[in-house]
Write a protein that binds this DNA or RNA. Structure first.
Lengths: 158, 158
DNA sequence: TTGATATATATAGCCAGGCTATGTATAGTG
DNA sequence: CACTATACATAGCCTGGCTATATATATCAA
């Protein structure tokens, strides 16, 4: 299993990471730079998860809590998200996408996609299926990786 | 062809970009943060392309020239790259990986891969093939996208 | 060869995103 | 009701990102 071909998984991961980095850069340039990667990541998490506390948002988005405090502050200022009081815990507020935030996120996705279409539209339906299949494999594992990093020290006794 | 299912390519691109962003973040965290994404991108380009002028490096890496000047300055300071005079053009020097730079890059890749193996090592060989195939499809198109963004205004007369 | 223009990089100056360390306010508990 | 734990905010620092602009070298024309 994992010891069969020890280098194979690792090489694949390294390649994936490298491609991911270049794609992220490309997307930012293609989208016209209006906002940054961290912002889109945050908005994406909010869109898929709904109102979320700041700490959980940081964890899902893969940044430290103070970093998320800054990002959220910027997003609030620009009206992309709002803070909703959590009546059950007054230390906390839930961060929620506003209508504007929703719209802006969708526009951004459309803009990125539109800008990259010329580079990708020669894909055949079969090739697109391949990419889609790969995405389905990768996505849950990325999420798992984030979780593992967030709670790496698990007490042996539990 | 591309007008058949107008949303399909775009949706796929948007998903890809999103996954790429999350993977990049994950890699940075997993690698222990020693250095940043921009640095690894730059070193990777140097490793695959050999000594390169700063402007070309910026273009390949997808950043503006002054940004690359900064990144290279940092890398030189830390001994990861060196500037080699270009005798044919004194405005220019070639940026080259040092032995240290090479080693550090390889270590980083190994470290990232190692850190992410637990999240990916349940992939079957067939699934890995799928991912590899997708990568082969995506990589050249990312490169193409960068090129298109870099030289977007092509004189009609040429 | 000299002046004009083009090209390659550097510098300046700004802002966002990233971190650690630490402060503050609310929750929860003996 | 004091005490610890938790959730977030603040402070301060660094890097990466940009545009605008300066500088140095090439190149070409007269």
């Amino acid at each position: 299993m994992s010891t069969d071909q020890p280098d194979t998984v690792r090489a694949l991961i390294a390649d994936l990471v490298q491609a991911g980095g270049r794609l992220t850069r490309l997307a930012r340039r293609a989208s016209g730079d209006e906002t940054t990667a961290a912002t889109w990541r945050t908005l994406s998490v909010l869109q898929s998860s709904g109102p979320t506390r700041l700490g959980e948002l940081a964890q899902a988005s893969g940044v430290a809590q103070p970093t998320m405090t800054k990002i959220v502050a910027g997003l609030v200022e620009r009206g992309r998200v709002e803070r909703v009081a959590d009546e059950t815990d007054h230390r906390v507020s839930l961060i929620a996408l506003t209508g504007t935030g929703h719209a802006v996120l969708n526009q951004w996705r459309a803009r990125v996609a539109e800008a990259l279409v010329p580079a990708f539209d020669d894909l055949t339906p079969e090739q697109m299926d391949t990419i889609r299949a790969a995405l389905e494999l990768i996505r849950p594992r990325i999420a798992r990786g984030h979780q593992e990093l967030t709670a790496p020290i698990r007490k042996v006794i539990d």
